[in-house]
């Protein structure tokens, strides 16, 4: 499951993408009607794929503790719910989160590499990673150097990812492309290919700090990069859209997109995550609506 650093050489070129065609394709996913048992099943899947996230300058121990509690107690009024896949925090809160989540299946993910801009030296970035890993992070979410990428210095971007990957050791690496800063879908595809070749375990759209964050067209292009890699090598890579997905209906359409682009093997928290903080409650409200057939009020679902 853990990929190798610099698993494949830097690709010399990437396939091109037509944005209008991509949007047409994604509009077919959103036209899928997900009803009844498939909806309930889908909503439960969504819950299990969420990385509950807090990445604020004003994060505190209290906030992180509350988040970790929420990860285990999504809605105690309705027992038997899945817990989320992971909580995602800054490196200095990894140890705390680890402690809070001890004995649970929920992992701890940490952003690193001078998140969110990535503008620092490789040395400092690697120390950042080391801090997260040494504190027990199960997953590391790095950012690519978008400036170097725009300069056309793809080798730099590739080498950096490979170095971070090595530094991650047993932690799985998510590579954030920050697609909102890449400018075109062709560049999203190029960055995806570079990250996959360099050894990313996951590719991830966004930091959540830049608009637009995850969109269906961007995610589709990244899924296609993953699919093409799988076609070529038989090796699976994970995907994490982050930011901007707050409604369960949209999340379900993302799952349709994953199913039709990659196949059902990816419908698993090992291979697909949502980076989101408010999505969980909307999913919970939908689950309760299905269970009680009453439309729900946000007042009945805890905010953390």
């Amino acid at each position: 499951m853990l990929r190798k650093s610099a698993a494949y050489p830097l690709p010399t070129s990437s396939p091109t993408v037509d944005q209008v065609g991509v949007i047409e394709r994604t509009s077919r996913f959103t036209a899928r009607s997900i009803k009844k048992e498939s909806k309930v099943q889908g909503l439960n899947m969504v819950l299990s794929m969420i990385d509950l996230t807090t990445l604020e300058g004003m994060d505190t121990e209290g906030k992180v503790k509350q988040l970790c509690y929420k990860a285990q107690h999504l809605h105690d009024a309705y027992p038997g719910l899945n817990s989320v896949a992971a909580v995602c925090v800054y490196p200095n809160y990894v140890a705390l989160a680890k402690k809070e989540l001890k004995g649970t299946t929920t992992g701890v993910a940490s952003v690193a590499t001078a998140f969110p801009s990535g503008n620092s030296s490789l040395k400092l970035k690697l120390e950042d990673v080391k801090m997260a890993v040494d504190s027990g992070a199960d997953e590391v979410d790095m950012v690519i150097s978008r400036g170097r990428f725009h300069q056309g210095d793809y080798a730099f971007v590739y080498d950096e990812i490979a170095s971070v990957k090595t530094a991650c050791g047993k932690a799985r690496l998510k590579v954030i492309l920050e697609t909102g800063e890449l400018g075109t879908l062709d560049k999203v595809r190029r960055a995806s290919d570079i990250a996959i070749a360099a050894g990313a375990d996951f590719i991830k759209t966004s930091t959540g700090k830049i608009q637009p964050a995850a969109t269906m067209p961007v995610t589709l292009v990244m899924l296609e990069a993953i699919r093409d890699h799988y076609f070529k090598t038989g090796e699976m890579v994970g995907m994490k859209p982050a930011g901007g997905i707050s409604k369960s209906k949209l999340a379900l359409h993302y799952l349709i997109m994953v199913k039709e682009t990659l196949g059902e093997a990816w419908l698993d928290p090992t291979w697909f995550r949502f980076g989101a903080s408010s999505l969980a409650n909307d999913v919970l409200m939908q689950i309760m609506k299905q269970a009680t057939s009453n439309y729900q009020s946000a007042d009945y679902f805890s905010i953390d």
């Binding site: 944005q19 608009q211 637009p212 067209p217 961007v218």
Partner: peptide, 13 residues
Amino acid sequence: HPIEQIGASGSGY
């Protein structure tokens, strides 16, 4: 022929 819809009015993609 398609017309790409990136950039105008900050719509992004």
